[in-house]
């Protein structure tokens, strides 16, 4: 990806050319070897998982590193239907639809207020978020269980969504606060002077302006929540039918030992990776644009 609009403007191509030439020589054999090694290490296992998903279980066991002799789609149907991966995927999507929307909406509202309004306790609220960022889910396991039980939210979709939102909010708000601060104030002020309400200013002016930041933190949250394992393990472990994808895959990974359906496991893993790759493919450009503008200014 070349530089985007948010990065510092590059000088004209004429001035740029010598530099590019210089870096071309820097990128010597050693660097190339390093990159190739990285690609093999990083993407290799994923490609192997995806390829293995097309092989029958017996073949996988006898020769784990082999190439698929022919492409077998039945692993996918087995995983989807028999191993309930279909059900788990739907559960994950439903939870994510609620939690991601909630996180982004509440997080951007809070960030907007912290970044753009002075009110008593502004600093304290900001510290609350910064502090919350440091507090991992794993420390809170026992008390969080009690909290959710008290509110009657244990083993409910709403409860899981709320927990996801609460643990994603600190970083989201923290990130977006600095992002909103980098946006020019003029447009917002003009809108307010023209009599636009807070709500209208926020949704019609500020949110569109903050799009790059929203996209990158949105993807960050998507990855985190899609792969979240501890929270569902703690709050959503009662009924196997309501498992989310990581739970389903983990239990499949444990049970393949005696059921021997390795093919279904690999197919399940592949299914779980697909949405992540799609989202990444669609938003790749914005991720970097957002990081550039939000993270570092």
């Amino acid at each position: 990806m070349t530089t985007t609009a948010t990065t510092a403007p590059r000088p004209g191509t004429a001035a740029d050319a010598p530099h590019e030439k210089g870096s071309g020589t820097t990128l010597n054999v050693f660097s190339h070897a390093f990159l190739v090694l990285w690609v093999v290490l990083a993407a290799g296992p994923l490609i192997w998982v995806a390829l293995t998903a097309f092989r029958p279980s017996a073949e996988i066991l006898s020769d784990p590193m082999g190439w698929p002799a022919s492409f077998h789609w039945e692993n996918f149907t087995n995983a989807w239907n028999k191993a309930n991966i279909g059900q788990y995927t739907v559960n994950s999507l439903i939870i994510l639809a609620g939690s991601l929307t909630g996180t982004m909406l509440l997080g951007s509202m809070a960030a907007y207020v912290i970044a753009r309004f002075t009110f008593p306790g502004n600093r304290l609220v900001f510290m609350l978020f910064a502090g919350g960022m440091m507090f991992p889910v794993i420390l809170a396991l026992v008390p969080l269980f009690a909290v959710m039980e008290n509110f009657g939210l244990l083993d409910t979709r709403a409860g899981l969504m709320i927990a996801y939102i609460a643990y994603s909010l600190p970083f989201t708000t923290f990130f977006l606060t600095s992002f909103f601060r980098t946006l020019p104030t003029g447009v917002q002020e003009a809108a307010m002077v023209d009599g636009a309400s807070h709500t209208r200013t926020f949704f019609q002016i500020m949110l569109p302006m903050a799009k790059p930041g929203l996209v990158s933190i949105g993807i960050f949250n998507f990855l985190g929540q899609w792969n979240q394992y501890l929270l569902p393990l703690l709050l959503n472990n009662e009924d196997e039918k309501s498992y989310v994808l990581p739970q389903g895959l983990a239990s499949l990974a444990v049970s393949q030992g005696y059921r021997g359906d390795w093919g279904a496991l690999f197919a399940g893993l592949t299914i779980a990776m697909l949405p992540v790759l799609v989202v990444y493919a669609v938003f790749q450009r914005q991720v970097q644009a957002g990081l550039t503008a939000g993270a570092l200014k």
């Binding site: 609350l128 507090f135 809170a140 026992v142 927990a163």
Partner: peptide, 16 residues
Amino acid sequence: VILLILAVVVWPVIEL
């Protein structure tokens, strides 16, 4: 947002 953080993130800390 503050209520949510207090209930789900801060309260567990105090309980802990």
